[in-house]
């Protein structure tokens, strides 16, 4: 079941540098939140706070009622949280299937001793996970690559494999860090289809960091715009794209005067993608 993600007054400091300042928003269960902002706005830092890779200096992050702001990354799977990374971090030497199986790690039972002697329940759970991973890959159109070594695939396909890996954890909340960066038009379209499929199933709450405004418009129910570590505005994708403060944050004050609004809108996507 999808869960509610709530952030309240999240602050993050590195020494004297303030990276995030009083960021707060709520993502309702089963919805998609787009997190946008110019480079350096703090989007990935915020992701790292949610996923436990950074520990916020103050503030609260909750999944449903569970406070997770002090939880280590490895503890997040217990709360149903999974994420992808800006640069897909796959094990290039391993097969695509092995990469995807890794996502189901937390769901496999048993300690090292029971795996070393291959107790029947371990063998069975491994076999089931394998079948599920192959199904998932098939669903994402990557079935043909399952037994290929990951380094044989293109960047775009790596993104698909990484998404597949994250889904293997059966997350309730999924964080996608620039899932469409570096994808071809066709790949972006199929990515949007995939996320629509997930949304329709209604089992995952999604937060997407993305510069590609087409993706955000197509997928996000709500958009939060970050700038210099603070929340600039929150609303729909349309509101965000026409908000003068957002345009200014992306392009500066002068360009706002000299460009008409449609150009600017395209500029937001192109500039960052």
């Amino acid at each position: 079941m999808a869960a509610r993600l709530t952030l309240a007054d999240v602050n993050l400091h590195f020494g004297g540098v303030t990276v995030l300042k009083d960021v707060g928003f709520t993502v309702e269960p089963g919805t998609v939140l787009g997190l946008v902002g110019p480079n350096g706005a703090g989007k990935t830092s915020l992701f790292n706070c949610i996923s436990g890779h950074y520990r916020p200096s103050s503030g609260s992050i909750r999944i449903d009622d569970a406070e997770i702001s002090q939880t280590r990354p490895a503890g997040m799977s217990r709360h149903g949280l999974a994420r992808t990374f800006q640069h897909p971090a796959l094990q290039l030497e391993s097969t695509v299937l092995d990469n995807v199986l890794l996502g189901g790690h937390a769901r496999l039972p048993g300690g090292p001793a029971s795996w070393a002697v291959r107790l029947p329940p371990m063998v069975r759970s491994e076999r089931e996970l394998r079948a599920e991973a192959l199904d998932r890959l098939e669903e994402l159109g990557l079935g043909w690559a399952a037994h290929r070594s990951a380094d044989e695939l293109s960047h775009g396909l790596h993104k698909g494999v990484e998404l597949c890996r994250a889904l293997m954890a059966r997350p309730q909340v999924l964080l996608l860090d620039e899932p469409a960066a570096g994808l071809s038009h066709g790949e972006v379209d199929s990515f949007i289809q995939t996320i629509h499929g997930l949304k329709a199933a209604g089992e995952i709450t999604l937060v997407i960091v993305e510069h590609h405004m087409g993706v955000i418009s197509a997928l996000a129910d709500r958009v939060v715009v970050l700038n210099h570590g603070s929340k600039l505005m929150e609303g729909t994708a349309c509101q965000a794209q026409s908000d003068p403060r957002v345009i200014e944050a992306y392009l500066g004050k002068d360009s706002m005067d000299s460009n008409d609004s449609t150009d600017t809108r395209d500029g937001i996507g192109d500039d960052a993608a």
């Binding site: 996923s51 990374f85 971090a89 094990q91 890794l102 937390a106 954890a169």
Partner: peptide
């Protein structure tokens, strides 16, 4: 699989639980 991801990328290992 867990050992290999710890070797290659600890951040990803953490994200996998």
């Amino acid at each position: 699989r867990a050992f290999r991801i710890v070797k290659e990328n600890e951040a990803v290992a953490g994200a996998m639980g």
